[in-house]
């Protein structure tokens, strides 16, 4: 008995976590998938009816807005964060004496809760008292910056706050990448008199392709899961102009009492995440095996 235990103790130790993940991740995904195929409203039902929830979802203007917003927000958030992050990393890579301090400043927003970030930017972007009022106070009486309360532009305020929060992190990723490029090659290029910008554009940046991919994965993951930032900054409003899939799902689940819609929208979110993450993870795991 004790010998058996000795031999199987690693499995016994891993078992509770494994069972928990199996049940609370995969079991729950299965549950949500199942319910997304039923007519569940306030209470879950378990008779499968086909894809009616998805048909309802794709016919709902609010979901349409949410997906459009995800596209606008996701694209801008990822592109701007990457460009800004890369720029900052290159600037910081020039043997800056105060690099440590500056890096700390660029990265601290990542330690904040999205609710805090949203609260801060909600105040800064408040038309009556924030930036708009400030610039008007300088004498530019016609200055207008009311994106936060403008249904067509409010989604861009989410981009502003999101980029502020995450670009420092992208900078840290790129900086680590820049530092890992082989110094000998750069030295050789410098000896040959190749200008610095060419060294970056032709040697360093192309060699960082894996980091671009990592940054893209992390940022797109953040974008799809964005929930708290929208809640704190705009509350999904004006109306539902800044709804994202995550806020749509939450509204259906907890305030509209429409479990079928909540489940089907959650499944779509997961499909989007997996379409991006699974190929990446798969290649990572394979690479790890080959090491």
């Amino acid at each position: 008995m004790s010998e058996w235990l000795e031999r199987h103790v690693p499995k016994v130790v891993l078992a509770p976590s494994f069972v928990a993940i199996l049940f609370f991740v995969y079991g729950f995904i299965a549950w949500t998938a199942w319910v997304s195929l039923t007519r569940s409203r306030l209470m879950p039902k378990y008779d499968i009816e086909g894809f009616i929830q998805y048909e309802r979802l794709f016919a709902a203007p609010r979901w349409d807005t949410a997906m459009n917003n995800l596209f606008i927000f996701g694209t801008l958030f990822i592109v701007i964060s990457m460009i800004l992050g890369l720029l900052l990393a290159i600037l910081l890579d020039q043997k800056i004496r105060t690099e440590g301090v500056i890096r700390t400043i660029y990265l601290y927003p990542m330690a904040l809760s999205m609710i805090v970030t949203g609260t801060a930017w909600k105040w800064i972007l408040n038309p009556g008292l924030g930036i708009e009022a400030m610039v008007r106070g300088w004498g530019y009486e016609d200055f207008k910056f009311d994106w936060l309360v403008n249904s067509d532009l409010a989604i861009y305020t989410v981009v502003i706050a999101g980029v502020w929060q995450s670009s420092g992190f992208v900078m840290a990723l790129f900086l680590a990448g820049l530092r890992s490029v082989d110094g000998e090659i750069i030295k050789a290029a410098q000896v040959d008199g190749i200008p610095t910008w060419r060294i970056y554009s032709a040697i360093i940046i192309p060699s960082m392709a894996p980091i671009f991919l990592s940054a893209f994965i992390v940022l797109s993951h953040l974008a799809i899961k964005s929930f708290d930032l929208v809640i704190a900054l705009t509350g999904g409003g004006p109306g539902y102009a800044t709804d994202l899939p995550a806020t749509y799902m939450y509204a259906m689940a907890f305030s509209r009492g429409d479990i079928g819609q909540a489940a089907s929208s959650a499944m779509i979110m997961m499909a989007v995440v997996f379409a991006i993450v699974v190929p990446y993870l798969y290649s990572e795991l394979r690479a790890a095996k080959n090491d």
């Binding site: 494994f18 799902m249 909540a262």
Partner: peptide, 23 residues
């Protein structure tokens, strides 16, 4: 063990919305 680890790893990346209702 590797399969178990992969399953746990994939679990990190799910959007939590997909477990909210059953949880």
């Amino acid at each position: 063990a590797n399969i178990i680890f992969s399953l746990m790893l994939f679990g990190c990346f799910i959007p939590f919305q997909v477990v909210l209702l059953p949880m």
